[in-house]
């Protein structure tokens, strides 16, 4: 009996246990759920120690070629501060680490986020109508520009949504609904894809271990 065989059977039995929730809550589902949560937590702790803490911090603090680099005590101390959240009297120290993370993250991504998700998109909308192309692209460009403008009008609350403004807002909300519908359709596809993946595993990997070949 190989480890692959054991793995396939474990995967199959746990999958079926989880799917059994669709009938009703039961001990098999509870067992699989708790096992998953426990295994995930344990796995992440070990993975982060081995792949993040040791190579990124410990190996720099105490290099293999010898010596000791005290500068690396600073990130170590900040990491320790994060863990002090579980000690009520010292939990405020974690704010120092958190502020560093938030400050670095915000500073790094502020301009990039603005450029990528705002300015580039605005730029794309401005040039859309002026671009050449066939009739379909021209219609598509008009829909994009109209959709963006009317969508923004819908979120403009300093004027009552009546008359022209109301009409534009209605077009805006309609465009938003179409976008939400497309998003929902994609979500359905994603969930069915996961079911398909697990079904392929059960049909073409698990059943053959019992001599059933479809």
């Amino acid at each position: 009996m190989s480890w692959t065989f054991v793995g396939i059977w474990l995967g199959a039995l746990l999958s079926l246990s989880l799917y059994s929730f669709l009938y009703k809550d039961n001990p098999f589902y509870k067992f699989a759920e708790h096992l998953f949560v426990g295994m995930s937590a344990g796995y992440w702790v070990i993975y982060n120690i081995k792949n993040v803490l040791i190579p990124n911090w410990w190996n720099n603090l105490v290099p293999a070629e010898g010596g000791f680099q005290p500068i690396w005590l600073i990130p170590g101390t900040l990491a320790l501060f994060m863990l002090l959240r579980i000690v009520p009297k010292l939990s405020s120290l974690s704010r120092m680490s958190l502020s560093l993370i938030v400050g670095t993250g915000a500073g790094l991504s502020l301009t990039a986020m603005l450029q990528t998700n705002a300015l580039a998109q605005v730029n794309g909308t401005i040039i859309a109508l002026g671009q050449g192309g066939d009739l379909l692209s021209w219609i598509s460009n008009i829909i994009i520009v109209t959709g963006v403008v009317c969508g923004l009008v819908y979120f403009f609350f300093s004027k009552a949504h009546t008359g022209v403004v109301g009409g534009a807002a209605n077009i805006g909300i309609t465009i938003l609904m179409v976008a939400f519908g497309a998003s929902f359709g994609y979500t359905v596809m994603a969930r069915i894809s996961l079911l398909i993946g697990q079904t392929q595993f059960l049909l073409f990997e698990w059943l053959p271990t019992m001599g059933i070949h479809l």
Partner: peptide, 17 residues
């Protein structure tokens, strides 16, 4: 990307990003 996140990335296609 996963289907769930695809609509979020479509604007990047329109702008050539």
């Amino acid at each position: 990307c996963t289907a769930v996140s695809a609509p979020q990335f479509y604007p990047y296609l329109g702008t050539g990003q």
